[in-house]
Amino acid sequence: MPHFATEESLIHVAIKAEPLFHLGPITVTNSMVGTLIATVILASLAFWASRNSAVVPGRFQSFLEFPLEFLGGIVRSQHPTRWSAILPPILTIFLLVLVANYVGLLPGVGTIGLHVVEDGHEAVVPIIRPASADLNFTLTLALVAFVLFVSWGVRANGVRGYLKETFVANPPYMTPLMTPIHIVSELSRIISLSMRLFGNVFAGEILLAVMLALTFAIVPTVFLGLEMIFGAVQALVFALLTLTYITLATAGHGGGHDEEHEPGEHDADDVALRAGAH
């Protein structure tokens, strides 16, 4: 476990989630606590919405409706017939990542901790670690995204169609060259999705910790504001990339599935391909 502890301050940076206590065979880590806090916040919002939503929205309801309206519009425009099934997981990913990122910005998160002595070092293990700064969290979401776009591909093109799209290149003689690249690109999406989110949030945490230790007063506040923007952007990127992969999977990659295409979907494909290339 790498420690960056200076004499004056305890900048505690651990690349992995740290165990807090053991519950039978399960090791409860501080990122699990962060995940649970995000879940509880979202669940209570949902509970509020189920009881207090009205046709004429109040301020809070409008605030809650904003992501639904925004992402709902995007999903609806790309999948006019399937949007109602695609939207909930996309929205859940977006909201969970967003809130998980913001949990990391709350005061006390990452700074209040348990004193432990490990390997002769005295260290503070934070009780709460933002969930997105744990690769387990981001990897799970990336796997969920992978399952989503593969299952939507199968659902849209059939098992044979999906396998053909994935493993047979167009033209067919290119298959030996293209298929390995294709498989790697499909699998690398898991790594790119999970690592991008983890890296951004983890780097943000380090940045905040370092700024808090090196400077004072207004400087960490500026970075806190930046982290709020990054947190929202990363949540949006994760959700939109998942949607893009689903769109690519349902649209198919080449010719031969034109009956599945709607006229507007070609444009969506182009946009999705360009977005997916990054």
Partner: peptide
């Protein structure tokens, strides 16, 4: 950790869909 996160995600998906998305979309 992976299983915990997966269960948490699925639970949250259910809760949000049932209590947040559906009522608000209906409204």
């Amino acid at each position: 950790s992976l299983v915990f996160q997966l269960i948490n995600f699925l639970l949250l998906l259910y809760l949000l869909n049932r209590f947040l998305f559906k009522p608000l979309l209906a409204r």
